[in-house]
Amino acid sequence: MNILPTEIPDVLIVEPKVFSDARGFFFESFNRQAFAEKTGVTAEFVQDNHSRSAQNILRGLHYQIQQPQGKLVRVVVGEIFDVAVDIRKNSPTFSKWVGCRLSAENCRQLWIPPGFAHGFLAVSEVAEVLYKTTEYYAPQYDRCILWDDPDIGIDWPLNGASPILSAKDQAGKAFKTAEVFEH
Score class of each variant (00 low, 15 high):
residue 1 M to E: 11
residue 2 N to Q: 14
residue 2 N to L: 15
residue 5 P to W: 00
residue 7 E to D: 15
residue 12 L to Y: 05
residue 16 P to Q: 03
residue 16 P to E: 08
residue 18 V to N: 14
residue 18 V to F: 14
residue 19 F to R: 02
residue 22 A to D: 08
residue 24 G to D: 10
residue 28 E to Q: 08
residue 29 S to G: 10
residue 29 S to I: 00
residue 30 F to Q: 04
residue 31 N to A: 13
residue 31 N to G: 04
residue 32 R to Q: 14
residue 34 A to W: 01
residue 35 F to A: 06
residue 36 A to H: 11
residue 36 A to V: 04
residue 44 E to N: 12
residue 47 Q to R: 03
residue 47 Q to M: 07
residue 48 D to G: 05
residue 51 S to R: 02
residue 60 G to H: 09
residue 61 L to E: 09
residue 69 Q to C: 03
residue 69 Q to D: 05
residue 69 Q to M: 03
residue 70 G to D: 01
residue 70 G to P: 10
residue 74 R to W: 13
residue 81 F to C: 08
residue 81 F to H: 13
residue 83 V to P: 11
residue 83 V to I: 11
residue 84 A to K: 06
residue 85 V to N: 03
residue 85 V to T: 08
residue 85 V to Y: 10
residue 86 D to S: 02
residue 90 N to H: 05
residue 93 T to Q: 11
residue 95 S to Y: 01
residue 99 G to Q: 07
residue 99 G to D: 09
residue 101 R to Q: 12
residue 103 S to W: 12
residue 104 A to Q: 11
residue 105 E to C: 03
residue 106 N to V: 08
residue 107 C to V: 10
residue 111 W to G: 02
residue 113 P to W: 10
residue 114 P to I: 01
residue 116 F to A: 04
residue 117 A to S: 07
residue 123 V to Q: 01
residue 124 S to D: 09
residue 125 E to W: 00
residue 127 A to F: 14
residue 128 E to S: 08
residue 133 T to L: 10
residue 133 T to W: 00
residue 135 E to W: 02
residue 137 Y to D: 07
residue 142 D to C: 09
residue 146 L to R: 12
residue 147 W to I: 00
residue 151 D to W: 00
residue 153 G to W: 06
residue 153 G to H: 04
residue 155 D to A: 15
residue 155 D to C: 12
residue 157 P to D: 11
residue 158 L to N: 03
residue 159 N to V: 09
residue 160 G to T: 08
residue 163 P to I: 09
residue 163 P to Q: 04
residue 167 A to L: 12
residue 168 K to T: 11
residue 168 K to L: 12
residue 169 D to A: 08
residue 170 Q to H: 09
residue 170 Q to L: 15
residue 170 Q to G: 12
residue 171 A to E: 15
residue 172 G to R: 02
residue 173 K to Y: 11
residue 174 A to S: 13
residue 176 K to C: 11
residue 178 A to G: 04
residue 183 H to T: 10
residue 183 H to Y: 02
